[in-house]
């Protein structure tokens, strides 16, 4: 597969011995790729390497077959939305959006179009600090999109918004990006955000790429324990417990089971219900097995009682 944006063994070696990469990724035209990882995993460094703010110590980046590894940020034509937006405080909204546009008769029309795209038509003369956080985020997006970049990069685009606003903005963001059809990479540490926004997700940990794939692929077929536990809730079983749930035949005997893939039954892994967390439609039951290992079962709210002796079986397991 040869993608529109090709990242080949790109690598950054920091002075204190921390290394990010080598990472290789192919991203198709119009695809949204999420870089998901815990803080300090190197995902922001990856984004900055792509933008050209950091120089790579190895590897190359190509867009539509053109090698841009050594192209300075100003000539790279990659749009970027910064975590804190980095709107110019001394310019108004229109001047911010028009910053990357050449002076031409239709500049005003382009600014208006970019603002209309993010649903802020007529906001040209507003001061940046008069806007709410969500509006600032949209101005930042309009500014990045206005010069019609080849690739859009977003650094934790929703982390500055309050949770209530985040979910709505997430959908609007995806809609705008898909309408423009731009190839997009964004960084996040939230699994839900990555699932919701990304076509594919690249999981990064300690500077290395762990797995790339569609959300359900990562969830159902994680390649290792890190991906299994970082993406979604997961119970990890080893040894006797793993065998009781029907695993242990292949791999190194480690079994990962999602809470919703466990259920109470007449036989299987025995344990005692220690906690019950009611979430409305269902409840999480924390069960302690005979080796005092705890795990979670998602079931009907009245499936079991506190202190009850239960047996648990798995409907689907991931063997690692």
């Amino acid at each position: 597969m040869s993608g529109f944006l090709q990242i080949q063994a790109i690598e950054k070696r920091w002075r204190d011995g921390v290394t990010v990469g080598p990472v290789s990724l192919d991203i198709a035209q119009g695809e949204i790729l999420a870089l998901l990882g815990p803080s300090g995993s190197g995902k922001t460094t990856m984004l900055r390497l792509l933008a050209g703010f950091e120089t790579a110590d190895g590897g190359r980046v190509a867009v539509a077959g053109e090698d841009v590894t050594a192209v300075p940020p100003a000539q790279r034509r990659f749009g970027m939305v910064f975590q804190h937006y980095a709107l110019f405080p001394h310019l108004d909204v229109g001047e911010n959006v028009g910053f990357g546009l050449p002076n031409s008769p239709d500049k005003g029309a382009k600014i208006a179009a970019a603002l209309a795209l993010v649903d802020l038509a007529g906001y040209e003369k507003r001061k940046v600090h008069e806007l709410s956080g969500g509006q600032q985020q949209r101005v930042a997006l309009a500014r990045a999109l206005a010069p019609e970049p080849r690739v859009l990069l977003l650094d934790e685009p929703l982390s500055n918004l309050d949770p209530a606003l985040r979910e709505r903005t997430r959908h609007e963001l995806r809609e705008v990006i898909k309408r423009v059809g731009i190839t997009t990479l964004f960084v996040t540490h939230e699994q839900e955000e990555a699932f919701d926004l990304g076509d594919r997700i690249a999981v990064i940990n300690q500077g290395r790429l762990e797995q790339v794939g569609a959300p359900d692929e990562l969830y159902e077929h994680p390649v290792n324990l890190f991906v299994a536990t970082f993406v979604g809730r997961a119970n990890v079983f080893r040894g006797k417990a793993a065998r009781a749930l029907g695993g242990g035949a292949n791999g190194n005997g480690v079994l990962v089971v999602r809470p919703e893939r466990l259920r109470f039954a007449g036989a299987g892994l025995p344990g005692v219900v220690r906690e019950r967390r009611y979430i409305g439609a269902a409840a999480f039951f924390v069960v302690e097995d005979d080796e005092h290992e705890r795990f979670e079962v998602l079931a009907e709210p009245d499936a079991a009682k506190l202190g009850e002796r239960v047996y648990v079986e798995a409907t689907r397991v991931i063997a690692l």
Binding site: A51, G52, F53, P72, P73, A74, Q75, R76, R77, F78, G79, M80, F82, Q83, H84, A86, L87, F88, F99, G100, R143, A144, P147, L153
Partner: peptide, 18 residues
């Protein structure tokens, strides 16, 4: 804020313009 200068660069502004 250093990201302001980076933002300018990502929008195609050269050193002088930044």
């Amino acid at each position: 804020d250093p990201s302001l200068e980076e933002a300018a660069a990502s929008l195609g502004a050269g050193r002088w313009r930044t």
